[in-house]
Design a binder for these strands. Structure first.
Lengths: 194, 194
DNA sequence: CCGTTCAGATACTATCGGTATCTGAGTATG
DNA sequence: CATACTCAGATACCGATAGTATCTGAACGG
């Protein structure tokens, strides 16, 4: 196996372990040393694959986003009519919102951005991509339901993303939060803006 | 001046300085040493007034919540009809959401809760109080507007709080986020749930 | 082969939250 | 009023951790 291959393998393994630990304990509470050791390496391996903790976490977030987007798209393509899609999405939200605590990691890491221009720009870039993807999904769904002209897809996307972040944050602290709110609000939003 | 008075003064001064610094730089990036020195004391003063960084931050959050609640209540009592109130609230949101970055501090601190049962319980307690207060406000407003039976105040409160947290978080990173979304969504929610 | 490169290990530094100990001004008591 | 006590706050220290500097040995090119 070539040296480049081995390094790529190391990198992936580090991201994998870091993802578990960041999600379980949060960003600040996870030390690079522990990540490295648990992945079977030393801290040096981390610093020769990433510029530091921030870049490692960014890679972890990318990996999480990928999973999450797959889940959302699957929920939306399962059914074909508006209500069925919203229901499928609600089911996804019930499972995926707040429990694996990815929103908590997301917002904790977001706080770093105040100190780091790198994190700030990278995070904003990703948020805009995600918002655009949601807007596209909304556009598609409302067009097929024949109500595209009554919904502002960009505003709806911002509202839905915010709602998801907020609910996920609350729920990662307080498990009694009712996630049905998400689907209900979504239904109201998609049924026409004003 | 008695010793107890001096200590109370010291405590208030520490909270005041900590509030500025936590809001400006975030929880993790603010060191107790710097807070103490900037307040004109040594780190010992912090530890003789608070059990540690967590309790200090909790006191800061309480101070912030007080300000915030005052703002919301003022917005709601200024006008008397539904649309006027929503407009006043929207104006408050434009000013108070995401810019002084209190939501960012709130959620960054929330991440600590995974490691600290104290933070977890205290934070959940406060979130429930806030949600109850919002629900009460919703109940009042919808009753006066004669639409109380079409709105679930508790669900609306959860949605509004989540939306506020989410929008504030996004906006503290990305200033181009449109906060009008908040008022628009609120209007939709208050005009009837299903 | 053999010198170079570089992924990853090892050793070290700086910073920060927290603890232990100290000190001197304020307090209670005779 | 004098003396002993208390405790807010200062000082000195410890352990953990992100980041840096240096080293090493195995994979490459020539």
């Amino acid at each position: 196996m070539s040296r480049a291959d081995r390094q790529a393998q190391t990198r992936e393994r580090l991201i994998e372990v870091a993802r578990e630990m960041f999600l379980a304990d949060g960003y600040a509470a996870t030390s690079l040393d522990k990540v490295a050791v648990r992945a079977g390496f030393s801290k040096g391996a981390v610093y020769s694959n990433f510029s530091g903790k921030e870049e490692l976490c960014m890679a972890v977030l990318d990996s999480i986003h990928e999973t999450q987007i797959q889940g959302v798209v699957a929920a939306f393509t399962l059914d074909t009519d508006l209500d069925g899609r919203i229901e499928a999405f609600a089911a996804w939200a019930r499972e995926g919102l707040g429990r694996p605590r990815w929103t908590a990691l997301e917002v904790e890491f977001g706080a770093i951005a105040r100190q780091s221009p790198y994190v700030a720009t990278e995070l904003v870039k990703r948020h805009r991509e995600i918002r655009a993807a949601i807007a596209q999904l909304v556009r598609q769904v409302t067009t097929e339901a024949g109500i595209a002209d009554t919904v502002d897809a960009d505003q709806a996307a911002t509202a839905l993303l915010s709602l998801g972040i907020g609910l996920g944050t609350l729920r990662s602290l307080d498990h009694t939060i009712d996630v049905a709110v998400f689907a209900d609000t979504m239904r109201v939003l998609l049924r026409g803006w004003r």
